[in-house]
Simulated assay, not measured.
Amino acid sequence: MKVYSKQTVQHVNATIEECWTFFSSPANLQKITPQSMGFKITDFDGKNMYAGQIIQYKVSPLFGIKLPWVTEITFVKEGSYFIDEQRFGPYSLWHHKHFFEPAENGVKMTDLVHYALPLGFIGRIMNTLVVKNKLKEIFEYREQKVNEIFNSK
């Protein structure tokens, strides 16, 4: 299995507390996900993030095909980082670390995703032709939305 990684770093003009409040609420994920993804939370307990929390979604990453996606929040260090991992969904592996560090005039937010695709050789071709570009597009959209929410003040 080939494991890929994607890292992004963004400055957020906010306090750690403001960042944490926004990003630790699963309900806000839809606000920073492109509409083209057809992202919809179908089940979660409505609580702020905690280790062991299960969140269920529907996503349409390609060709409008709706797929279930179930993630578990596996680690949380309040105000510092959290990790979500796919339990069921389109990837063979999805491990997403979200870090929040104090920085001059705000917060340095770092995302590090490790992912793998099913279907061996076909999955590697799909990553090259489609998936890595789609992830780039999703994270660029997220950066734009975070800028609108926090950095346009």
Rank of each mutant, 00 (worst) to 15 (best):
E143R: 06
V130G: 06
T128M: 09
Q86K: 09
Q53M: 11
H114V: 02
I54V: 12
M109S: 04
N133T: 05
E72R: 03
K47I: 04
H114P: 00
P118F: 14
G79K: 00
V131Y: 05
M49T: 02
G120K: 14
V107P: 01
D84L: 02
V113I: 15
V76A: 01
D111R: 09
A103V: 07
N48T: 09
I73H: 10
G120S: 09
F63Y: 15
H95G: 04
Q56K: 15
K66I: 10
I83D: 01
L129G: 06
K66H: 07
Y141N: 11
I122P: 05
T71H: 04
V76T: 02
T128V: 06
Q86D: 11
S80K: 11
F139W: 12
E72I: 00
N48Y: 07
L135R: 03
F63S: 11
Y115C: 12
V107D: 00
N105M: 06
E140D: 13
N133L: 08
K66N: 05
K132D: 07
Y141R: 14
D111C: 08
G120C: 11
A103H: 09
P61E: 07
Y115W: 08
K47P: 01
Y57H: 13
T110W: 08
V59Q: 14
L93G: 05
K97D: 08
Q56W: 05
L62N: 03
A116V: 07
I73R: 05
M49H: 01
F99Y: 10
V59L: 11
L129H: 04
P68F: 11
M126F: 11
P61Q: 07
M49E: 01
L112W: 14
G120P: 12
T71Y: 02
Y91T: 04
I138F: 07
Y141P: 08
Y91K: 04
K47Q: 13
Y81M: 08
Q56Y: 10
G123I: 06
S60E: 13
V130K: 04
L93Q: 05
H98C: 00
Y141T: 06
M126Y: 06
F100N: 00
A116W: 08
A51R: 01
E72N: 06
H95S: 10
H96A: 10
S92E: 15
L129M: 11
F63W: 14
T110R: 12
E140A: 13
N105Q: 04
L135T: 07
Y57L: 06
V131S: 08
L129R: 03
P90G: 02
K97Q: 11
R87I: 15
V70A: 14
N48L: 05
L62H: 05
R124F: 02
R124I: 05
I125F: 10
G123R: 04
F121L: 15
V131A: 12
K97C: 08
P90F: 00
P61L: 07
D84P: 01
L119P: 10
D111M: 08
M49G: 01
P61N: 12
V131P: 07
E104T: 10
